[in-house]
């Protein structure tokens, strides 16, 4: 039996031999994380549902090629991120440049907005408007930065796991995460900074 943190143990042999009950329990256990990834990547429930279905259809078809060298969650995240990036490429080809993420990837942009908005009352951060602003800011990130940010800071994967899912180096994960976070900080400063100045 194999097991992953917080998940029910599963039998790799049963999965690989096509045991449908075992596959159903994997679908049950991992569909919330795949659905959330789809929602965060594509910002649309219908697209998230498509990603969810396609991920498990591909997983079922390719179960014979899963040898358990990575965890089930890493394997499923890999399928799901590929699906999400392909979907984005179909919808907005200009927004996806995974293979060629830019010549100046290691150069961070300079912070433009220097306003200390950390001191705002906590409830200001929890309003529906603030939450919508967080989603909007994340959806404006280029796909190659957004996927790293979602896996690391929202799904809580380690740098190493994120690198395995995306098949990139750990250094590339750190660089893209840094760029994503700085861009989000910049974007949120524009919004929360204005609220602070209005008070």
């Amino acid at each position: 039996m194999n097991s992953e943190q917080g998940q029910k143990p599963y039998s790799l042999d049963a999965l690989r031999s096509g045991d449908r009950a075992e596959f159903a329990s994997i679908v049950e256990a991992y569909s919330p994380m795949i659905y959330r990834l789809g929602l965060k990547m594509l910002n649309n429930p219908q697209d998230a549902e498509d990603i969810l279905q396609e991920t498990f259809i591909k997983a079922y078809r390719n179960i014979g090629k899963f040898y358990g060298r990575s965890s089930v969650s890493t394997w499923l995240y890999r399928i799901a991120t590929n699906e999400a990036l392909m979907s984005l490429r179909r919808k907005r080809p200009e927004a996806v440049s995974f293979e060629n993420p830019g010549l100046h990837e290691s150069e961070p942009q300079e912070p433009l907005q220097i306003v200390d908005w950390c001191c705002m009352p906590e409830e200001e951060f929890l309003t529906a408007e603030s939450r919508a602003r967080l989603d909007e800011a994340a959806s404006r990130l280029p796909a190659n930065l957004r996927v790293v940010f979602i896996l690391r800071d929202i799904e809580g994967l380690s740098t190493r796991e994120t690198a395995q899912v995306l098949d990139i180096s750990e250094m590339a994960v750190k660089t893209r995460l840094s760029r994503a976070r700085l861009r989000l900080r910049e974007d949120l400063t524009e919004y929360f900074g204005q609220l602070v100045e209005e008070e």
Binding site: V27, S31, P32, Y35, R36, L39, K40, P45, E49, L52, Q53, F56, P111, I114, V115, D116, W117, C118, F125, R131, L134, A138, F149, D153, I154, G156, R181, L182, L184, R185, L188, T189
Partner: peptide, 29 residues
Amino acid sequence: VVDTLSKTISLYQTSSEPIKVPDEVRQRL
């Protein structure tokens, strides 16, 4: 920049509560 960067990350982490797959989505899946 460091304080607002930390706050940015923690806002995203705390706003990402576990999601339940809606029943009808689960059924269709």
